[in-house]
Amino acid sequence: MTTPSEQWVVNALRQATDQLPLPPESRWIRERRSTSRLQPAVMAVLAAMFIVAVAGTIAALRAERIVPATPSEAFVAADDAAWQQVRAAMPADVLVLRPALLPVEFRTAGTPECPSPTASWQQMARTYDVVYRSGAIVGPQSKPENSTCVRLEFSIGRQVEGTVSPSLTEVGTISARGTSIRVRAGTEFSDRFTGVSRHLVYLNWTESGSFYEISTFDLDLPTLTAIVRSLEPVR
């Protein structure tokens, strides 16, 4: 219950904010970055060169992509701190599962733009998350401040599994943790900052009354399988 004087303040606030102009509706959603003024043919050549370069790099790195998650003292310290934070925050009967294997790009202690790993409580999802980030991606048409981090996210919670969005489609299963874990992928979208096409990869399962999620972008099934099978309890 508000008094008349309080109501006056609230009314003044609402009137002031109602006068704030909105951006045109065309700018409310911007999933696809407008790419450039270059000719389409030039764009096609650049895109082809980019794809070839990325494919070559991936092929070169694939053989040793999955490696033990213990590369440097800085990373180990940050990794231990993040998982101990989760362990301390969760009830003792919740199994906190930590990956022993990580893709090579997530084995670094991160950068100021993309700190890694970090642990945080997610109020909305009611989960504790540990997020690994790799170096910032800056697309050919984007500014450095608009870089985006590649993420690999582990979530642990006590809640019952929520309904998975129908926009995610099942792309495979992983036999691990004594169950069959369904792997889902989102529709491909263009990263609005970098212009790079990406798709969300998401998997979840319940175990001993707790809820576990892994979400990331673009990881393939063998990599995800290796990660899930490497999960170990944090003591």
Partner: peptide, 11 residues
């Protein structure tokens, strides 16, 4: 908006 699309709003 993008996050809502990615994570789904059925949570």
């Amino acid at each position: 908006f993008v996050k809502g699309l990615e994570r789904g709003i059925d949570r």
